[in-house]
Design a binder for these strands. Structure first.
Lengths: 150, 150
DNA sequence: TACATTTGTATGTATATACATTTAAATCAC
DNA sequence: GTGATTTAAATGTATATACATACAAATGTA
């Protein structure tokens, strides 16, 4: 019985809009806690994992820091510092862009790709274990979230 | 057109479970960014706002730090430090619990209640503006999130 | 060309998250 | 009661978020 009222011991909400905000924040924490546990043995955070996936999606094409920033899940995060952390771990490379010396080209390294490969199956299995929904329900949830943001 | 694929420029997802995780993280960031903008003029963070609401729900009954922790939206957060911040602002009071000297009783102050009152209408209006769903859709989303967590 | 404006990235700072460790008080076992 | 264990809260430390600001390179304009 996973009702949000029980989970956070709040008897009732003023209105369903208020409630859904709380419910989303709470569910987010539920998911991130699971993700953290999964990624911790690999030495990366969920945010760093996301940046690596963005870079893999480039199929070898270099990407700039600001392009990563635009595509991050948390727009207020700091791509510059996350890239720096990944570089220290040898998971990405950073080279000055020749056409515009302000820009920095980022590519995922072989080591970064290997890490993603090792993680892939585990992440997929963990997601399916942690999300107690049928596939039609997941599709519906995706539609509602997309519509929510307008 | 708010599809998550467009928002983060990812062409497709391996499976809908994977996609709904990304969608929830992204939607969370969307909501928290809105909340931050709303609360900033009042000098509190979303997490501090949540603790104040928990305390208001007690109707004057004191609550311990660990009880606040249990009811926080982010279970990994740090109630002890958040309470400290609120105390510095004069929004809560902290007294040693007489029956168990390890525990600390927390109550919201008059100033804290006034802050919540001033915020109330604004938060409600902001929530309804930021959530582009009908009421039936909101109810459905609440149900799906509750079920997701199992 | 000279100078203002814009853009890409990095840095500074306060807060929060994630988790380990510490400290003191309460409870349990004997 | 003494010592071990558990519990409540605080503290330590690394990372991330949320902004503001700085700085250098590029662009626009007179």
């Amino acid at each position: 019985m996973g009702k949000i009222e029980d989970a956070i011991q709040q008897k009732e909400f003023k209105d369903p809009f208020n409630k859904v905000v709380v419910n989303l924040l709470y569910t987010h924490s539920y998911l991130v806690t699971s993700q953290n546990g999964l990624l911790k043995p690999f030495g990366i955070s969920p945010e760093q994992y996301n940046v690596l996936r963005i870079l893999r999606g480039q199929n070898g094409e270099p990407t700039t820091v600001s392009s990563i920033q635009d595509r991050m899940l948390n727009k207020m995060s700091n791509a510059s510092r996350l890239v720096e952390k990944l570089k220290i771990k040898g998971l990405v490379e950073r080279t000055e862009c020749p056409s515009d010396r302000r820009q920095v080209d980022i590519v995922i390294t072989e080591k970064g790709l290997e890490l993603l490969n090792r993680l892939q199956n585990q992440v997929e299995r963990a997601n399916q274990n942690v999300i107690h929904l049928t596939e039609p329900e997941v599709l519906q949830l995706n539609d509602l979230l997309d519509k929510l943001r307008g």
